[in-house]
Design a protein around this nucleic acid. Sequence first.
DNA 1: TCTTGATGCTCTAGTGACTAGAGGCCCTAC
DNA 2: GTAGGGCCTCTAGTCACTAGAGCATCAAGA
Lengths: 138, 138
Amino acid sequence: MFSIGQLSKATGVKVPTIRYYEEIGLLPQPGRNAGNQRRYGQDGMDALGFIKHARDLGFSLEDIKALMGLDGHLGDDCAEADRIARSQLANVRDRIRKLEQLASELERISHLCDGGNGGCCKVLTALGDHSQCAGEHG
Amino acid sequence: MFSIGQLSKATGVKVPTIRYYEEIGLLPQPGRNAGNQRRYGQDGMDALGFIKHARDLGFSLEDIKALMGLDGHLGDDCAEADRIARSQLANVRDRIRKLEQLASELERISHLCDGGNGGCCKVLTALGDHSQCAGEHG
DNA sequence: TCTTGATGCTCTAGTGACTAGAGGCCCTAC
DNA sequence: GTAGGGCCTCTAGTCACTAGAGCATCAAGA
């Protein structure tokens, strides 16, 4: 049996976050000891590990709820799990594409100040004027 | 003179968002007409354009507030504007790096289901088990 | 056994950057 | 004059937490 603090240390999820996950129904309510403190078993540990990993992979809590709801009964739901994973991959790729455009735009803006000399505050002008941008962004 | 709706159409910033920017002190309070409706001039349009572009580039409202505060008096502040832009660039590059790790991880997970056959729900197992990951992420 | 300090509990409120809705006033075109 | 769109303020909700108040409980040492 683990206390919430031990669970926190083991998984790297902060204590208030664990309570928050319980509150929104993502983590099942654990048993309590005589003093009303939460006591978790291995299943609680596993569930929280699953959530942590999926969060690190950028899944929303909504996605994770869906994935965990599926976990019990496999079969067809496998397709659903795969769909969620793939849609998340597409999402991540899209974000990368957009961020790359932003990076090149920011590089351009930063170079305006390279010398540190005279008309240097083109940085502010460039930020204010989208028409100077090379490509699309936003 | 523009109404808030005209400003919204011209800049692509939604009406409630414009009011929100005003509320938090990012946009100066515009004049009002006899019926208490906001009326903007070209300076309001420019300010909102600046904010919109900077937001599209991923700057926080806090950053933008700093950049706009600097706008009046150039000189030394140029260095500050450049610092903010460069730190934003570093930030974006870092996010790209992390997302690329996530993408490769998600690709690996998705491939577990390629056949659509038998032991397909390795997707859920993989999501739950960080030790299967190739590299670092999160 | 007593004490002390860490850990735990619940509850409320705050974060950033908006978004949605209620309930009402104003403006413009016909 | 009237219809319908736009505008006003205010409150509350979103996501995924985070911080703090004020109190209870637990474990280890004296």
